Amino acid sequence: MEKAKINASELVALMLLFEIGSAVVVGLGMQAKQDAWMAILIGMAAGFILFLIYDYLYRHHSSLSLIGYLQIILGKWVGRAVAFLYIVYFFYIAARVLRDFGALLLSSTLPLTPMLVVNMIMMLAAVYACSLGIEALGRASEIFLSIVLMLAVLAIFLLTASGVIHWEHLKPPLEHGWKPVLQTVFPQTMTFPFGEIVAFSMLLPYLNNPLHARRLGLVAILISGLILSFIIAVNISVLTAYNAENSTFPLLRTIGKIRLAGFIERLEAIAIVTLIIGGFFKITIFYYAAVKGAHELFQVGTRKELALWLGLPLLVSSEIIADGYTEHIDIGLKLVPLYLHLPFQAGIPLLLLIITWVRKGYYPTSR
């Protein structure tokens, strides 16, 4: 592992940008209609539980990364096989987020630009960030988080001043009962974005004070959950639940409603800048987790060399994972949460936790 450390504020900034990422722009949890904000909060609560599992495994195995303690808990060969699957998972999700990023820019501002060109620019930025290391990424996250927060405050102020926020669109709460909300939570909002924090099981060993990992992680999940819930509530209040659900990028459409003083309008750039920053950090952290995992597992080359070698496959993967954006979103909302997110975010970590508890019971002094 590279000899690098990040402090508490850098870890929180990385987690916030990662959690917000692409989730702030797409219609998260809109299957619950006007109760989408509630589905996000319940998903956040599930995210707390998942992170406590990741933190326990991290603490119990001498602050190793996921790749390290998989081989300890499951044995060398089974552990290495599962570790390889996690590397593929991290890589695949990085490619999916890269595709999300390209699709938004093409549909909003660059309709005549090939997606390959847009994705290649972001891929090169992610590769460069990975080559610089986690310390550089952590320092950059604090700067970019402040930019995102300032843009968010500005957007809320302008929307309020424009008089387009109508909170009555959130009524009636629980019109169809709890069933639509819970069906949206499990598995969607629980796994995206909160369960994706599993990628940080590869980054927690870099924290300069491991004892703070649990508190910092829970705080980051809480803040990101409240931010996402509030933004979705604003989207519904401005657009109505029906329009927000049927918008590809509801935040973009919400910001487009700003009309103030006869000349302050067409501020969609606020949403686009937010996506670029959040998308960059989400892609980079998933990609970094894949690169670091491959380096730990196979012990070939250096981390910087692997970051360069895997850049082109990442770009190609983002192009071929779906024939079009509709198929891409359909796979992302229906298949990925059930068949990828749940096993890798909840199923396998829960199994690791049970095995650890059983061994601790048989060998209480082994820790």
Score class of each variant (00 low, 15 high):
292 K>L: 12
26 V>C: 00
310 L>C: 03
45 A>H: 12
198 V>Y: 14
214 R>Y: 11
274 T>M: 14
343 P>A: 14
208 N>Q: 12
68 G>E: 11
134 I>G: 01
218 L>S: 09
298 F>M: 07
111 P>H: 08
184 T>A: 06
206 Y>H: 11
83 A>T: 14
251 L>V: 01
46 A>Y: 11
132 L>Q: 15
300 V>L: 08
201 S>A: 13
214 R>S: 15
292 K>G: 02
354 I>V: 13
250 P>N: 11
183 Q>W: 10
7 N>G: 12
272 I>K: 02
181 V>T: 09
349 P>R: 07
18 F>E: 04
14 L>Q: 03
45 A>N: 10
176 H>V: 01
310 L>P: 03
29 G>V: 13
81 A>R: 01
343 P>D: 14
276 I>P: 00
296 E>V: 08
49 I>K: 04
137 L>F: 12
363 Y>V: 01
261 A>E: 09
335 L>S: 09
288 Y>K: 00
53 I>H: 02
286 F>C: 00
23 A>P: 01
71 Q>L: 00
312 L>E: 05
300 V>A: 03
254 T>W: 13
219 V>E: 12
38 M>C: 03
223 I>F: 09
132 L>K: 15
114 P>H: 10
112 L>R: 10
34 Q>G: 02
215 R>Y: 14
154 L>W: 11
327 E>Q: 12
83 A>Y: 13
29 G>L: 14
321 I>P: 01
142 E>C: 05
8 A>K: 06
276 I>F: 14
32 A>C: 06
150 M>S: 14
50 L>I: 08
70 L>I: 06
259 R>S: 06
291 V>Y: 06
107 S>P: 00
203 L>H: 01
99 R>E: 06
221 I>D: 11
348 I>A: 04
84 F>G: 06
208 N>R: 10
164 V>H: 05
276 I>T: 13
51 F>E: 09
245 E>S: 13
273 V>L: 14
367 R>H: 11
314 L>R: 01
190 M>E: 03
167 W>D: 00
212 H>W: 06
44 M>G: 15
60 H>N: 12
234 V>D: 06
260 L>E: 05
308 L>C: 05
119 N>R: 11
318 S>Y: 07
211 L>M: 05
159 L>C: 04
